[in-house]
Design a binder for these strands. Structure first.
Lengths: 334, 334
DNA sequence: TTGTACGCGTTATCAC
DNA sequence: GTGATAACGCGTACAA
């Protein structure tokens, strides 16, 4: 069933059918009803490829995700897809790895598919050197980009993010105010967001006049984080004689690893070792006691990402950068 | 840049460009190189819409997911997308809810988008009454369907699943052999997979001559499972005077809820209360002690789903149903 | 081995 | 209000 068949059955031209379809232009009520009834009768649905060919769009947004099995990103995926589809947009999912070359390929792939825009999920996509971001600038010449939880200032690139700096600063400060002076900061990413969090940690110390100890800033390099690996890593620090009386991590799952360490070594949480994670994911509720964490308002970030992108596509002007405040959620671990 | 531009620059016809593009037919080495160099020079990429129009396919698979934020499904999504793209297929993600009407709409939506096939993730999509599966039979007349972890016998519908019956039976039997006689079975879904698991639980009891106690079979009805909700639910059972000395759950997250209950009530895991979950997800490693669980070979299921679907699309014949064995992974909770 | 011409299903632009 | 017709960019018989 195509538009010609319908036009024939309805006794009109394809132009009229098209008008009814896009309920544009003025079509007489009578003709419209006639056409609609024929379309209904034959379950007619316009061919999306042909439509795409003419309109140069299939109303599809590319979702670039470093890893859909990451709890936080999976949540984001879920929100984004729902919100996009509510606006009549399809979601083309593409899981790149973290490697720069894979991310570049991912972006190119989506561009070649003529998606209308791309949402890049997580701060993985922004490098801390200009050269590594060339692919973003180049992509932005083809279509609008939205960075979810990252920031990069460029024409046609929009950033929607949580203020990781202040959120981590507040978390650290909370522990300082409890009298902790040797706070271990454990992180996993040196991307934009990762560095902001680290800065927040340092800023809190500075504000309170506590010297920064480099050995208390630990970068967990393993690409894939597993709870046992993190546990062992911290056990290793302990064996090296590094002393700490509180922990802030850049992700909840690392906080869970700290719990494991504490249990093995016999330190009580929170009395001996308060812990604060990041993301407020369901990992927090698994622990005993439950893990305090920073809620970075994921649902709102997703919503604004979608709204921003669709506005850009419809030619409206939108802020180039939107920043939300994180919120420290206190539970049993502090 | 379209195929005409390229053909002109290369001094050949579009047909030749097309041949080079689809490296089919025999094109002289010289011509091929000439065309390729021009394409490279202008960064030419064929328009996917025009291609789709002619070929009646955009090499896109629909991924129907009841909820991408579910840990297990998020993992599956990640595997599926990667494997599909490796074969040159795009993934169109669609998160339906669990409601039948939403699932129906989701399937229809994907059909209207002319995806080449659909992978339905999780057993949510098969109802236990024939009438509720009409939409599957109807969809199968348009395109091939693969049920990931569900089963439904029908032309053009393929099932790839784990043997939940035997897996749950084995888990239950393991506890029976440890001398437990009042094993609580906690489940969340009455779909195909959910009922199979339940049957497995009952079969294990029967095999050992232990009577089934209906009050020990608890159906957690809340649509959204949260750990605190599950904990409270079990506390409620306890208050009602229901006695149990072991627990098998249909999903890991419920197992975590049981941990929370045990801690509050002061029962030790595993001495007083061994627990076995299902899915072998990362929830298992968060608990203390770690949660024993059934590994249902998700990665293999995903791989086979993709292989099956692509074979069907290329006209090869494949088994209508593939069943894998689950594996009981024992950890500290038993 | 290469080129011509048409079909694919829709939207947009005219003319009537 | 409505209809004819030209794009849109590619694949592919068929012809050369």
């Amino acid at each position: 069933m195509n538009i010609y068949d319908i036009s024939e059955k309805a006794g009109v031209s394809i132009a009229t059918v098209s008008r009814v379809l896009n309920n544009s232009a003025r079509v007489s009520q009578k003709t419209r009803e006639k056409v609609l009834s024929v379309m209904a009768q034959y379950d007619y649905v316009p061919n999306p490829f042909a439509r795409g060919l003419g309109l140069k769009t299939m109303r599809t947004i590319g979702l670039l995700c470093p890893n859909a099995s990451d709890y936080y990103l999976a949540m984001a995926l879920s929100y984004l897809e729902r919100m996009l589809r509510k606006q009549g947009y399809d979601s083309m999912l593409l899981c790149t790895g973290k490697a720069l070359s894979d991310r570049e390929k991912g972006v190119e792939w989506l561009i070649s598919k003529h998606v209308d825009g791309i949402i890049l999920m997580g701060s993985t996509f922004v490098e801390d050197n200009e050269n590594g971001n060339k692919y973003l600038r180049n992509a932005a010449t083809h279509l609008p980009l939205v960075l979810l939880n990252a920031s990069y200032a460029n024409e046609n690139i929009y950033s929607v993010l949580c203020d990781d700096f202040h959120a981590t600063m507040n978390a650290t400060q909370f522990l300082l105010e409890k009298g902790r002076r040797n706070i271990l900061y454990l992180y996993h990413n040196r991307n934009y967001s990762g560095l902001k969090k680290l800065d927040g940690y340092k800023a809190a110390l500075k504000n309170m006049g506590v010297p920064v100890q480099e050995k208390l800033i630990q970068y967990f390099t393993e690409d894939k984080m597993s709870i046992p690996d993190i546990r062992d890593y911290i056990l290793g620090l302990d064996r090296k004689g590094i002393k700490f009386d509180a922990v802030v991590t850049s992700e909840d799952v690392m906080g869970v690893g700290v719990f494991k360490y504490a249990r093995i070594i016999g330190r009580n949480v929170p009395e001996d070792l308060p812990i604060i994670g990041y993301n407020n994911s369901s990992y927090c509720l698994c622990c005993e006691p439950e893990l305090s964490s920073v809620d970075n308002k994921l649902e709102m970030l997703c919503e604004q990402s979608v709204i921003t992108l669709l506005k850009v596509l419809s030619g409206e002007s939108v802020p180039q950068k939107m920043v939300f405040m994180g919120e420290l959620v206190l539970r049993g671990s502090t």
